[in-house]
């Protein structure tokens, strides 16, 4: 005899909690073959606002954690994902209509990217920082520090890999993230949020919004308390206007990328959301 399955309700992920959209809206997520998969929450501008507040509250603690600790926390995500590998593979097969092999490959690559970025946490500052030989009696050092709150429009063509590829590097340096998931494939994003919620990632460090990037992103681009915006998945949006809007508070902006390997692993994706801080201190024996 067959058992009646218990379907999952997919909600937003804000400040470590899973609220419904304050607007009460949802939208139907369909499988590749057009079947009903779930109702995803359709986030509003107020949800985006709440997510920014949660991210701002979290950034101090995350940025203040030791780099070693951040590396371990990011690696822990990979461990947990590995444990739920089958779930993500199945989700991607359903959502994207991908073959088992392709879905597996996507999950494997996503897990490996967490591992790759986890390893950078306590190294990128050594690679991109400097001790500066200034002409005077000063200790002078330049170090990269997190930019702060980073809004991300996740790549829209994949369920998991694009999202991870954009979120992971932003976390390495200690930024807190508000990410707008793929509109078509939002379910794995929320499943990832469930992984994050049970991992060691502090609440508010990653906030996941599902819904319409076209509706939500302008509010993030113009939000004065957002320090940077990664438009990697925004190629279908009016991203030039988003960039212009971001210029109002001189946000750091990453441009859209397309293709299956958007947001490919690169040190540059970490440093894009860092600020070089240079500290001078007098030096004397007397």
């Amino acid at each position: 005899m067959s058992r009646l399955a218990v379907p999952k309700t997919y909600k937003l992920y804000i400040g470590g909690a899973f609220p419904r959209s304050e607007s009460g809206r949802t939208y139907e997520v369909l499988s590749a073959s057009g079947g009903f998969l779930a109702n995803a929450a359709k986030a509003s501008r107020k949800d985006a606002r709440d997510a920014v507040v949660a991210a701002r509250a979290a950034v101090g603690g995350w940025a203040g954690a030791t780099a070693y600790n951040r590396g371990q926390v990011l690696y822990r995500i990979a461990e947990l994902l590995e444990g739920r590998r089958a779930q993500f593979v199945a989700e991607i097969e359903d959502a994207e209509g991908a073959t088992r092999a392709a879905a597996s490959a996507q999950v494997d690559e996503a897990i490996d990217r967490w591992v790759w970025y986890a390893g950078w946490a306590d190294k990128f500052a050594q690679v991109t920082g400097n001790a500066n030989p200034v002409a005077g009696p000063y200790f002078n050092i330049s170090v990269p520090e997190p930019t702060g709150v980073v809004a991300i429009v996740a790549p829209q063509d994949t369920s998991l890999l694009g999202l991870v590829s954009a979120v992971a590097p932003a976390l390495v340096a200690g930024n807190a993230v508000v990410v707008v998931a793929s509109e078509r494939f939002p379910l794995s994003a929320i499943s990832l949020a469930e992984v994050l919620a049970t991992s060691d990632v502090p609440k508010g460090v990653v906030n996941v919004l599902t819904g319409s990037p076209a509706e939500i992103t302008p509010w993030l681009a113009s939000h004065a308390d957002v320090n940077a915006i990664d438009l990697v998945g925004a190629s279908a949006l009016d991203w030039v206007d988003l960039e212009i809007s971001a210029a109002d508070t001189l946000k750091r902006v990453l441009r859209p990328e397309q293709g299956p390997d958007a947001a490919a692993p690169a040190l540059g994706r970490i440093t894009a959301f860092t600020e070089t801080k240079t500290v001078w201190h007098t030096k004397s024996m007397r």
Binding site: V127, T128, P144, T147, A228, K251, R252, V253, L254, R255, E257, Q258, G259, P260, D261, A262, A264, P265, A266, L267, G268, T271, A272, F273, T274, T276
Partner: peptide, 25 residues
């Protein structure tokens, strides 16, 4: 295109880190 324009001070990527697909597209 894949590199941060705004954060050009931090743009550090070596060729091996960048997919040729992404670069060519």
């Amino acid at each position: 295109g894949a590199l941060p324009r705004a954060a050009s001070h931090g743009a550090v990527a070596s060729p091996s880190e960048t997919s040729t697909d992404a670069a060519a597209e």
